[in-house]
């Protein structure tokens, strides 16, 4: 069951196309990564999902039905660029945002107090926002995003601007909300967090969806069957043998004097003759499958896509 389905969405502005026939599915209960370089069209897509702008063509299904304005009450979106009214008091402002999400004043006050207590910021309630530091303001922004217990949470670069301690606090809170049943979408180019958190991703480049799927599956698929050897000795001696087997390889020197040898066998070939060839000329310390990091996949895929 998908909580969100984007079908063939396109959006054009004068002079450029923000999204061109983009489709993707976000499974219910997943942690989803929306990746892509700056200006790829991620924010435009999120704005369409949040009913802020309308697509030129295509449509979005939310929870099985066509997205309607009322659905924003079931979505919590924390934009990358975000601010608060500087002259307003923190508590009053949080109430304002909560009521815009359709909560009653009483309900909103009770839940806000809970969250403020959890973040240990209850004494900020009557402070003006301009007295807060950037990190403090971000906590308030986070609270108003998740306060109405949305089914779908969308975070656009949520950890930028947070110190490591608060970033971790935030991550824990997001994961708690996820465990409680919320589907989470991260829009980011912080690949380390994608590997750690996301089950599924979509990579958007130049307004196209160029890669979609399960993170583990993508890493295995795009890693091919590369194998990484850690060896001691001069790797030049195996070059000829590997060449004869039709395999491609690259080597890099490690800090401890060993060499890391990355070998990709010829199409359809197995690893065995390669291991034998290496073993007969060099001392092997370890052999392991070389699964690329999301960062490598991101960079390579975007590069290939841009060259086309």
């Amino acid at each position: 069951m998908n909580i969100l389905e984007v079908h063939n969405v396109s959006k054009h502005f004068t002079g450029h196309t923000a999204l061109d026939d983009v489709s993707l599915n976000v499974p219910q209960g997943s942690v989803y990564g929306l990746l892509g370089p700056n200006g790829a069209g991620k924010t435009t897509l999120i704005r369409i999902i949040n009913h802020i702008t309308a697509p030129d063509s295509g449509h979005v299904l939310f929870d099985g039905h066509r997205l309607v304005e009322g659905d924003v009450a079931s979505i919590g979106y924390l934009p990358e660029e975000r601010g608060l009214y500087k002259k307003m008091k923190v508590g009053e402002q949080a109430l304002f945002f909560a009521m815009l999400k359709g909560m009653s004043r009483k309900e909103a006050t009770a839940r806000l107090k809970e969250w403020f207590e959890k973040f240990d910021i209850l004494d900020w309630w009557n402070k003006k926002v301009e007295e807060l530091s950037k990190g403090m303001a971000q906590k308030v922004q986070f609270i108003v995003t998740v306060l109405h217990r949305p089914k779908l949470l969308i975070f656009d670069e949520p950890f930028s601007g947070f110190d490591p301690i608060n970033a971790n606090l935030l991550k824990e809170e997001i994961l708690t909300l996820h465990r409680e049943g919320a589907t989470v979408i991260f829009s980011t180019h912080n690949m380390a967090s994608v590997e750690a958190l996301c089950d599924e991703i979509t990579l958007i480049n130049n307004s196209h969806n160029i890669l979609s799927g399960n993170v583990a599956e993508i890493r295995n698929r795009l890693g091919g069957n590369r194998t990484a050897f850690t060896v001691s000795g001069d790797t030049a001696v195996v070059a000829e043998h590997l060449g004869n087997l039709g395999a491609r390889f690259e080597s890099s020197l490690l800090d401890n004097g060993d060499t890391r040898l990355l070998v990709t066998p010829a199409t359809g070939a197995t690893m065995r003759p390669i291991i034998e060839a290496v073993n007969s000329h060099l001392d092997i310390k370890s052999i392991e499958p070389a699964i690329p990091s999301m960062e490598e996949i991101f960079i390579n895929t975007v590069k290939q896509n841009s060259q086309q």
Binding site: N50, I52, V72, A73, I75, G76, Y77, P79, E81, R82, G83, L84, Y85, K86, F97, L100, K101, Q141, V144, T145
Partner: peptide, 10 residues
Amino acid sequence: NRVLELVVTS
């Protein structure tokens, strides 16, 4: 001050 971005989410 980008408060607009937050307001238009709802």
